[in-house]
Amino acid sequence: MPVQLKTLIPLFAVFIILFLIARHFLIPDSFGKYGHYRANSIDEIAALPINYAGKAVCIDCHDTEAELLASDAHAGLSCEVCHGPNAKHADDYEIKEYLIKQGTREFCGRCHSLNPARKIEVINQIDIKEHHPEKENCIDCHNPHAVWELKE
């Protein structure tokens, strides 16, 4: 055997063995229990704070709005789509820091501004600049919980 290989082969073998030893210690205990990931991560993620309360929780208190909403085109939307994540508010009614009640042209325009790539049969769209410019915000006329009902 050439003199080079007499050194290289043991050297590579040492590398591989060291790697395998390191691997043994580096792999987390719960790795591979359910699949190709650390099983403990499920509990860790589950323990993270929750941001969204979910529609069912909102409805518990805000039943009037929920009833209105269910009767119209926004029935499919969840409350927090427009109002923002409010799990804290659900726990404590007084906390309203993230609660959104805007109804500005830009806010509603995120879905309803005219966009040729958006299907008009699915989402009603208007030109947010041209549509009744004398009014400031959409909610001056429209009730977002009952969208076809115009305010006086």
Partner: peptide, 18 residues
């Protein structure tokens, strides 16, 4: 050098070959 200090023609031929 990894401790391989043999520079005989035979070893050098192996260097080339490998």
């Amino acid at each position: 050098t990894l401790g391989v200090t043999d520079i005989s023609p035979k070893a050098l031929a192996w260097d080339k070959k490998l």
